[in-house]
Design a protein around this nucleic acid. Structure first.
Lengths: 131, 131
DNA sequence: AAGAAAAATAAAAATAATTATCATTTTTGT
DNA sequence: ACAAAAATGATAATTATTTTTATTTTTCTT
């Protein structure tokens, strides 16, 4: 009964259920679990579709891969400078308010805030390598 | 008398004199004005060198090109969502202090703050197209 | 200053991510 | 049911970046 094709829906569904901020390739992998013959081009196309629709946004990490995200509004990002993985974090309320007002006052459309910290996985890997 | 090769110096010099946050390709273009036969690979290599040396940093814009920057410390970025150009802006002092402390308290290495606004060039272009 | 070792380079090839093309299939509207 | 439009898979093309390799430049040692 939906207006969208099953693959288009699947791409969004995957985006909603993955808690990380996947690259297109990760979304593709995930989609193939339920739709084995979906093509990577379709994933890119539909990510672009949902982006245009305003449902999905791009997140800039720190490697040169695009990462995608749903519901960008109320969180900032914690980025691992080594692997580029991006996690969500709620804004401290007062900070969010400050920044919202700052945007209004200065004509900015939106803002993005990121913090950097080596993720658990990478710091473990570093320990192993050091041995 | 410098420790660095002339091309290595040139790359840094160009970075310091360009006020925008150029892509590697723009740096290459600029370098060729003084060193016509410098190669793009050398520009990439030396940007990476200066990055490792901690002098140059990467900035994430909104297209999928890497952009480079010197002196990342005391400014945030204003990014044009259409062309990806990145400009510097000083932090409001109180905000900077708040964020610095927030990092210290929570074990983050650093933070990055960006605001989004269509740049003058793009908004003019949009007007022209609309006619 | 000479000559060996190390570092830096240009040019080109390779890689990786993303986008475009195109023939075919699926969906939609009437 | 059938024509028109949209979506898709497969693959080719494009774009940005990195690696390779043979050569040149710089540095070090004597």
């Amino acid at each position: 009964m939906s207006n969208f094709s099953s693959r288009r829906q699947a791409v969004l569904e995957v985006m909603k259920t993955m808690r990380c901020h996947p690259t297109a390739d990760r979304v593709y992998e995930e989609c193939r679990k339920t739709i084995p013959n979906i093509s990577l081009a379709t994933v890119y196309r539909n990510l672009a579709f949902w982006e245009q629709a305003g449902v999905v946004g791009r997140v800039v990490g720190c490697d040169n891969k695009e990462r995608y995200d749903v519901e960008l509004d109320n969180h900032c990002h914690v980025i691992c400078p080594e692997c580029g993985e991006v996690e969500d974090m709620d804004y401290p309320a007062e900070l969010k308010e400050y920044l919202d007002n700052y945007c209004l006052d200065n004509g900015f459309e939106k803002f993005g805030l990121s913090f950097y910290k080596v993720c658990d996985k990478c710091s473990k890997d570093n320990l192993k390598q050091a041995k």
